[in-house]
Computed example of a mutant assay.
Amino acid sequence: MKFPIFICFFIFISGVNAQMIDKEKLLEYYESQRYAEAAQYLQSVYPEDTKDVKALTQMAYCNMMSGKFPEAEKNYLKVNTVEPGNLPVLFSLANINSKRGNAANAKAYLLEIIQLDSLNFSAYKQLAGFGDTPESKLQYLKKANALNRTEPDIAYDLAVAYREIKQYQQAYDVLETAIGADKDNFTLQQAQLPIANLLGKYEEVVETGENLLKKNTDVNVINEMGQAYFYLKDYQRCIALFKTLEDLGVQNEGTLYFMALSYRELKEYDQAAIYAEKTIDEGISDHTALYYTALGGIYKSKNRFSDALEAYKRGLMFKNSNTIYYRLGLLYDLNLKQAKNAVTYYNLYLKNKPDPDKEKEQISYAKARIVSLTHPKEVAIK
């Protein structure tokens, strides 16, 4: 860190009036990384309306390094006015705006950079993070990758973008090139495994996975290897790998499903049935009923009452829910005008012991509607 700081310092000193600057004091600020104090010192030396580019740049840098982004931006903008088209200044302005959450401004500065330098890799790399659409992000990543095919971060991000649009061969090729330049890059190899599986390169997945596991036990690698062994019809190894994940408590619906299928292929039907049931249990979320409740409410708001009814009832398949019982009562009562079904669900709501404090109004309403719907004539006389 000190070496480039000294370079900046001496370049700066050589370009300004040395008599105006206490070199030793400024050097001390830099050595101890007291950038805020360095900025204050420089501001005390130069007038506020100075147009000295080197001084303004140095003050801007010190303010940026000390986290004073508004002051840094102000200084850099002055430099940009005096000396437009300065790429380091434009990059700094883009960086400051990015850190302050001003994405539109940051992107504008980066676009200005590529207008000045259409082959600027760093600008395209940063622009990918400001892509307004998946398509624009992909284009920026492709351009950056074309300029530097071995840069690992861009290769990884581009492969992910290709995978999202199901262009698996392109994703694989991008990673293959980057891995060729860095054969020990665990992250790139791990990213390539699921893509290789999707392309049917199962033996490659197993070979690469085994090498990776020698360096580091990773559940994602084990997961991809287990799938590869399944498609290679090596069901015992598939089970063994996924059993490892189960023992670690990191199984999921997919791993359990492959275990069920593997036991079935081995004609171990009792075990297959056990893991089929585990798969079903794993696939059911504690929140599934809540999701169907929300869906039912959406359909009801759109007057799609039959769809709302179906959504609520699906929710009950996962969990007995006071909220769903109550909403079904309301739906049958007020929207579908089916009194008998409304009473059934109001009763189920009450039998399910709703909280008497939190649901006081709903309980009172359900009881009143049961009486009204069950004895409409008596209610009318009263």
Rank of each mutant, 00 (worst) to 15 (best):
F186Q: 03
F186V: 09
L188W: 11
Q189S: 08
Q189A: 08
Q190I: 01
A191E: 12
Q192P: 04
Q192G: 04
I195E: 00
L199D: 10
G200N: 03
K201Q: 11
Y202C: 09
Y202D: 12
E203F: 02
E204R: 11
E204I: 07
E204L: 14
E204W: 14
V205H: 10
V205D: 04
T208I: 14
T208V: 15
T208Y: 09
E210Y: 03
N211I: 07
L212S: 08
L212E: 08
L213P: 01
K214Q: 15
K214N: 08
N216K: 15
T217A: 15
T217L: 14
V219P: 01
V219A: 12
V221E: 09
N223T: 15
M225V: 02
M225G: 01
G226C: 09
A228V: 06
Y229K: 11
F230L: 07
Y231V: 02
L232P: 00
K233E: 15
K233W: 10
Q236A: 12
T244M: 02
L245V: 14
E246I: 07
E246S: 13
L248I: 00
L248W: 11
G249H: 08
V250Q: 13
Q251T: 06
E253A: 10
G254F: 14
L256W: 05
L256C: 09
L256S: 14
Y257G: 03
F258N: 06
M259N: 05
A260H: 07
A260F: 08
A260C: 09
S262I: 04
S262H: 02
Y263L: 05
R264T: 10
E265M: 10
E265P: 00
L266Q: 13
E268D: 11
Y269D: 11
Y269P: 00
D270A: 15
A273Y: 13
E277W: 06
E277S: 09
K278L: 08
K278M: 12
T279E: 07
T279C: 12
T279P: 03
I280H: 10
D281W: 03
D281P: 01
E282Y: 02
I284G: 00
S285H: 12
H287W: 00
T288H: 01
A289P: 05
L290V: 07
Y291A: 10
Y291L: 13
Y291C: 10
Y292M: 12
Y292K: 04
Y292F: 15
T293R: 13
T293I: 00
T293A: 11
A294T: 06
L295R: 09
L295C: 03
G296R: 03
